[in-house]
Amino acid sequence: MIRLPAVLRPNRVEITGTLVLAVAALVIGGGVAASSVIGPLLAGFPARCLGAETFDPAACEAFRPRIETYQNALSNVAPAAAGMTVALPIIGAVVLGLALLARELEQQTTLFAWSLAPSRTRWLLGRLAPELVLVAAICLVAGVLTDAIKFLGNPIDPWRSFDGIGMRGPAVAGIGVLAMGVTVFVGSLLGRQLPALLLALALTLAASLLVSAVSDTWLDQESMVGPTEQLDPGARQLAGLLQTADGEVIGWEEAYTRYGSVIYEGDPAQLGLTQVVKFVPGDRYPFAVLRLTGMLALVGLLGMALSLLVVQRRRPWA
């Protein structure tokens, strides 16, 4: 049996619980992801028909019914599996975040720790840092698995598609860090587990949505406008627009103002308008997802930094 360092032993139950959740996520996510190998064998079609790099339309055409059967079965299972693969490690992050301060303060074990530790900052960091690394690592693995699940049976490179951005890949690690940081901070303020849990969940959701909105605004500024044919499969389509003969790009509402209801009734081309799309190409995904992950993690780290300030000033009881 592995013996934890002394500073981590007070959170032994939570660390074990988080590892159990991680294993569950690994089994669920890994199991579904592995179906890309096992599934074709069982369904009787070549596994290369599912690969982004290996997909060969000509060779795979003959297996289309079998591939579709497999993909239908997968589509029933994959969303739930991906959801659980993401959710379980994040639950672990919240559990660890609660144990770090809210539980200590509620059970007044901070009296023991803070009367011994000359530096409360060092006391908290000594436990927070390794648990943060654990959460980030587990969530990162979960993110990789959800990448695999999301694009099972879909010949698109997960790193060149905006589909499901924020709920897969490295962003899952960002959410994990955010959830942990928010929970630690709320716990440091409230010093009670249940209220801290409820508020932390609400704040984590709100912060995630806010960061996501900021990310979307950023993406909007980086978007480009082009004909529909220019859209790659992984592109993020932001809006359908119209381009006038003199090159001006306008929205449908503006077009309605200018041309009236005919714009919806007939072909815009008859009015000299070309349908275009505002989009972010799929090859921008790595940059966008890393930026999103960074923002999520930054909010989490900010929560942790604030909790370090709070423990400096607060009493060691709830």
Binding site: P5, A6, V7, R9, A113, L116, A117, P118, R122, G126
Partner: peptide, 11 residues
């Protein structure tokens, strides 16, 4: 565990 913990956090 408590003695170990005290040793870890108290110089």
């Amino acid at each position: 565990d408590h003695v170990d913990l005290a040793g870890a956090i108290r110089p």
